[in-house]
Structure formats: structure tokens, C-alpha cells
Simulated scan of single mutants.
Amino acid sequence: MDALTTRAPKQDRSRATRRKLLEAAVSCLAERGWSGSTVSAVAERAGVTRGAAQHHFPTREDLFTAAIEHVAEEWLDAVRERARALPRDGESRTRAVVDMLVGVYTGPLFRAALHLWVAAADEEQLRPRVNALEARIGREAHRLAVEFLDADESVEGVRESVQATLDMARGLGLANLLSDDSARRAGIVRQWSRILDTVIHARPEQPPGS
């Protein structure tokens, strides 16, 4: 067996261990918050040793920022895949896109990320990483929302309305943290989708006499 053949299984195992740690970190953060999410707790949940965890992620900050980034990338890939099944156009598509965005902010990824953001307010060494990560994910979420809504941001009010959709989704996610807010949320999503659709598909005013 040559060195290349031997190396491949080791690399596969290393990648598998890294993935287990990242997924365990997100679920741990979502359930226990920052104070309860130690490297040891994540390693135990992932079924690996603390030493193995620290081999991949030397610091706690490395582990949890990488975990949120990893799951966010997976979410973006899943959203792109789900977008293929969206209605072609019209208000039904707008509603489906808003539903999809709100679903992200009411899921475990948002809950985990929220704990990380709150921790960053007090943890000086964590703050720059979280700020950079939040900015990058925010830009990509906005870009995908514009793409899926087929929105023309050169039209007055459209960019602000798309951003308001993301801000609303984040707010609904916060409201859902303490109790099941699904009934109220469904009515808000339905009404906002109607409003957003009229903004995105508004016809330009015709000049008098045209």
C-alpha cells in the first residue's frame, strides 16, 4: 500500500471528525448557550476526545465561529436547492420566498448564532470574528432574497423592502425563542408578503398624456 493510498483514509477520517465537531458545536450552542458550550462539551457530544477537538480548533472561538460559518454555508446551499421548487412568479412566489426566509430565522441555526452574537458583545476576542461573519452572511442572504424575489433594486423602495423582510424575519425569530409563535407569525408573513409583492411588482407611473 503506497503513501497516497494510506493518506486518503486518514484525510477522510479527519474531515469526518471536523464535521462532527462543527455540527455538535451548533447544536450545543443552540441548546446550552455560550456559557454552557465548552470545547469539552462539544467533544463529548461529537464522540471525540478533547485533544482531537483542539487539534482541529485550537481555541473555543475558532470552534464556534467555524461552526456557525459551516452551518450557514450548508443553509445557503439548501436554500439554493429549495429555490428550484419555488412557484415561477407572482404573489405565490413572493409568499414562498418570505416563508423560506422566516423559516431560517426560526430554526436552530438562528438560535445558535444568536447565542454567539450575544457572547460577542462581552467577549472582546470573539467580537471581530462574529462581526465579519454576520456581515458576510447578511450580504449573501440579501443577495439571495433579491435573486429569488426577482426584485429590481434600482426601483425606489425595493432595496429597503427586501432588507425589511430580512429584518422582520429576524424579529420573528426572536419572538419564537421563548414560545411557539407560529400562529401569529403565519398571519404576519401572509400580510407582509402581499405588501412586498405590490412593492416589487409595482408598475412605473406613466407620464401624463402618454
Score class of each variant (00 low, 15 high):
Ser182Trp: 04
Thr6Pro: 00
Ser14Asn: 07
Val42Lys: 01
Thr106His: 05
Glu124Asp: 13
Ala8Tyr: 13
Ile188Arg: 05
Glu73Ala: 12
Leu166Tyr: 03
Val102His: 03
Ala175Glu: 11
Arg143Trp: 03
Glu134Asp: 11
Ala8Pro: 02
Tyr105Phe: 15
Leu166Asn: 02
Ala119Arg: 10
Arg88Ala: 15
Arg184Met: 13
Ala145Phe: 05
Asp197His: 15
Arg170Ser: 05
Arg111Asp: 00
Ala67Cys: 06
Trp34Ser: 01
Asp181His: 13
Ala8Gln: 15
Ala16Asn: 13
Thr198Trp: 05
Arg82Glu: 15
Gly187Cys: 05
Ala112Gly: 06
Asp181Pro: 01
Glu134Thr: 14
Trp117Ser: 14
Ala25Glu: 03
Phe57Ala: 02
Lys10Asp: 11
Gly107Ser: 07
Arg185Lys: 08
Ala169Asp: 02
Val98Ser: 02
Gly138Asp: 10
His142Pro: 01
Ala78Phe: 13
Val162Gly: 07
Ala112His: 04
Ala151Leu: 03
Ser37Cys: 15
Ala30Trp: 04
Asn176Leu: 09
Arg15Thr: 04
Ala113Ile: 03
Asp122Cys: 08
Ala141Thr: 12
Glu160Pro: 04
Leu126Ala: 12
Met168Glu: 07
Leu63Phe: 00
Arg136Lys: 10
Tyr105Ala: 06
Ile195Tyr: 11
Pro207Ser: 05
Ala72Pro: 02
Ala183Tyr: 07
Glu140Arg: 14
Ala132Asn: 09
Leu21Cys: 05
Val42His: 02
Arg84Cys: 13
Gln54His: 04
Ala3Leu: 15
Ala41Ser: 12
Gly138Glu: 11
Asp197Ala: 09
Ser154Asp: 14
Glu156Thr: 09
Asp152Ile: 12
Ser193Phe: 00
Ala119Pro: 03
Ala30Gly: 09
Asp197Tyr: 06
Ala43Asp: 04
Ser182Pro: 00
Glu61Gln: 10
Val26Met: 09
Val162Ala: 07
Leu21Trp: 06
Arg159Glu: 04
Asp197Arg: 00
Thr5Leu: 09
Glu61Tyr: 02
Ser35His: 13
Glu61Thr: 06
Ile68Lys: 03
Arg129Leu: 14
Arg194Gly: 05
Asp122His: 10
Arg19Leu: 09
Gln11Ala: 14
Ala72Asn: 11
Ala3His: 08
Ala113Glu: 15
Gly107Cys: 03
Ala141His: 06
His70Tyr: 14
Ile68Pro: 00
Ala78Leu: 14
Ile137Phe: 06
Glu160Ser: 13
Leu126Lys: 07
Val102Pro: 01
Gln206Asp: 14
Ala175Phe: 07
Lys20Ala: 15
Ala46Asp: 03
Val130Trp: 03
Asp12His: 14
Ser161Lys: 00
